[in-house]
Amino acid sequence: MFRFIASAACALSLLAALPHPLAAAQNYPSRAVTVIVPFAAGGPTDAAGRIIARAMQGLSGEPFVVENVAGAGSTIGAAKVAHTQPDGYTLLLATSSAMVVAPHLYAKIAYDGFRSFAPIGLITEAPFILLVPANSRFDSYDALVAYARAHPGQLNYGTPGLGTVQHLGLERLLEASGVKATHVPYKGTAPSLIGFLGGEVDFIVETPNAAMPMIKGDRARPLAVTGPARLPALPDVPTVADLGVKGADMRSWFALMAPRDTPAPVLATLRSMLERSLADPANVKALREAGFEVATMDLPSLQKMMEQEYGQFGQIIKAQNLVIR
């Protein structure tokens, strides 16, 4: 919170000293705005980025152009935005992994995680669902934990890769439950799901958009939800807190961010545009069809969530010695 006020104040004082950018900020945007999506074109996150860009373009009258800059766990795109002119003409569709995981995970990284950015607003947030194959012997999270406790390290869990939110979150959940299992990393979400459906691993966590089709198709069984509340679509599946595991919530989210020193009036304009975009039922529907439920959050809460996750992921990465050099 302090950091946010400090950076806002810093930006304001900068503006007071330089009248010219303020004038520029007042008629923002006066030309095309680039939204960097740190993933290859075509995936669901890219789709979400395009929906947001289209909506903001409609509100501002200037083109909002999506540019896909994929690579290195979305840190190349994030680094690119962190180092552009903070004038509001280059924005980032920021994932939780680029904001709060990457700074701990990569010893060499060209930006300072979420601290290099000024948030414009949250776009979506979803809990994970812990899944076992439909023919699994485990019909409850307690049964799974009991087995894992009796057979340490014998169960396998799959993730889309080392240092992904799924991996770190599951490690935290297992640690909070006091058990150990073997990590089997895959090269992305799709291969991890194939491995899961093929019976290579005993359990995984996935977001509802990936999990629901497998649950409905009777190929996977949900055991727990890692959010603060049960999901409307799965009223019978308990949250991990219901199961007595505290402090092991995990979620996937992404937000729109600008470089840290973006002038406050520009940020204000962008915030109001994003807010209006996300309030439009047509956009909410489009995002839902792309697999994302719109979630908004006031800026202090968003800042607090990032601070908190930043600390938690830092701990796990250090404890598991996962730093990539």
């Binding site: 669901p44 789709a47 089709p213 497998m214 409905k216 198709g217 069809e289 697999g291």
Partner: peptide, 10 residues
């Protein structure tokens, strides 16, 4: 997905 179809068993 953008067309509102989540490919899957159902």
């Amino acid at each position: 997905i953008i067309q509102g179809i989540t490919p899957g068993p159902n």
